[in-house]
Amino acid sequence: MGLGLPAIHRANEFKYAKDVPIEALLDAKSYKKLRKGVYDEFYGRSWLLYHYLTLSGKRPRQLINYQVALANGASELDSAKTAFGDLRALDAELDAYLAQRRMRYVPIAGEKLKVGTISVRKMREAEAAIMPVILESKRGVNSEMAKALLPRAQAVAASFPNDPFVLAALAEAEHDAGNFAEAAKIADKALAANPALVNAHVQKIFALSRLARDAQDPDSAWRLTRKAVTALNKVEVDHPIPLIYYYISLKAPGKEVTDVAAHGLERALQLAPYDKSVRWQLVQQFMDEKKYAVAYRTLMPLANDPHNQSDDNPAVALLAQIKGKWEQEAKGAADAPAT
């Protein structure tokens, strides 16, 4: 196995695509001004820059310094100039690096790779029958798609009425179609057959939390959700869903968020860093706690999302707001009289 092998598949991109200046490579605003619907070498050039800073040995620690400057609130361009110095010089070095006949990489011998036991089994008949429904559900469905998928799930469940794997999938289909009470009921049936079935626990939590939002007795309804959360947490301690929904079960009805719930939400983001909604929730929690520096760093991936660089990205405006509060807090601390 080799880490950092040359990206040969990007050779034509390097040769024929429109050049990207180093400033546009390091600063989202500069790149946005430059790009006007044309294909360019942004991804290839980004790979080259990362490879150069990581494996060439020419600029030790500069990438880390750049990341630290960003995390401490400096702009992208200022962070780059602080860490790398003359950006024109860096750009020229990249051109020379690309022209080399050889590039360093990190080889890892096969005998050093410790692969655990891999077991494969044939799916049971019930599992095979419901799998197409599961694949569509997991991919994501809108309201119209969910209503079309539900009868298919129900048809499979009619053939395998007591199979917990099928029942958990049916609970998910019922939930997606907006039948939350039915979803919770079916999830319970699945758990009665297999108390360790994670997806059945997850679907029960999802369904109960939706019911709790409109319940006449929200306190009781959210207590049921927390009970379901506890049950899944006992089955799989490092599953993010119980951590997320324990926090929601307190936040949604206006209860005081405990330290356990707040720390659980932090852990959930560690387990599922790709979940944008959890990141948003955690940023808001940090702001409530007036932890502006950590809120800023937590929000940065959303504000700098390369696939959402539109002017109406709400993370950009919120990041600026947090930075203002952070700077104001730092100024207040600096102006405070010594004791």
Results as ranks from 00 to 15, higher is better:
residue 179 N to E: 13
residue 141 V to D: 06
residue 178 G to R: 09
residue 181 A to T: 07
residue 198 V to T: 08
residue 155 A to M: 07
residue 180 F to K: 06
residue 166 V to R: 05
residue 198 V to W: 12
residue 140 G to C: 12
residue 141 V to Q: 03
residue 145 M to A: 08
residue 184 A to P: 01
residue 137 S to F: 14
residue 164 P to C: 15
residue 176 D to G: 00
residue 170 L to D: 02
residue 192 A to E: 13
residue 156 V to H: 07
residue 158 A to K: 15
residue 147 K to E: 11
residue 175 H to Q: 14
residue 190 A to W: 04
residue 184 A to L: 02
residue 172 E to N: 03
residue 198 V to N: 08
residue 170 L to E: 03
residue 147 K to Y: 10
residue 150 L to H: 09
residue 162 N to L: 03
residue 141 V to E: 07
residue 160 F to K: 15
residue 151 P to F: 09
residue 157 A to P: 01
residue 152 R to M: 00
residue 161 P to C: 05
residue 153 A to N: 06
residue 189 K to N: 04
residue 144 E to D: 09
residue 193 A to T: 05
residue 178 G to W: 05
residue 153 A to R: 07
residue 178 G to A: 06
residue 154 Q to A: 15
residue 188 D to I: 01
residue 169 A to G: 07
residue 173 A to D: 09
residue 145 M to E: 00
residue 146 A to M: 04
residue 166 V to H: 04
residue 173 A to T: 08
residue 137 S to P: 00
residue 178 G to P: 05
residue 148 A to P: 04
residue 144 E to F: 12
residue 191 L to W: 07
residue 145 M to Q: 07
residue 137 S to M: 15
residue 170 L to T: 00
residue 138 K to S: 13
residue 154 Q to E: 15
residue 149 L to A: 09
residue 187 A to N: 01
residue 181 A to H: 03
residue 196 A to Q: 12
residue 157 A to F: 13
residue 163 D to V: 10
residue 152 R to K: 09
residue 137 S to D: 11
residue 181 A to Q: 08
residue 194 N to W: 02
residue 198 V to M: 07
residue 175 H to E: 14
residue 197 L to A: 02
residue 147 K to S: 12
residue 171 A to S: 15
residue 148 A to D: 03
residue 142 N to M: 10
residue 155 A to D: 11
residue 164 P to V: 15
residue 166 V to I: 04
residue 198 V to E: 10
residue 138 K to V: 15
residue 152 R to N: 01
residue 163 D to S: 06
residue 147 K to L: 12
residue 147 K to R: 14
residue 195 P to V: 12
residue 169 A to S: 04
residue 189 K to S: 12
residue 196 A to V: 13
residue 192 A to N: 08
residue 151 P to E: 06
residue 159 S to I: 14
residue 148 A to N: 09
residue 151 P to M: 09
residue 144 E to R: 07
residue 154 Q to M: 14
residue 197 L to W: 00
residue 194 N to M: 05
residue 154 Q to L: 14
residue 190 A to V: 08
residue 159 S to P: 13
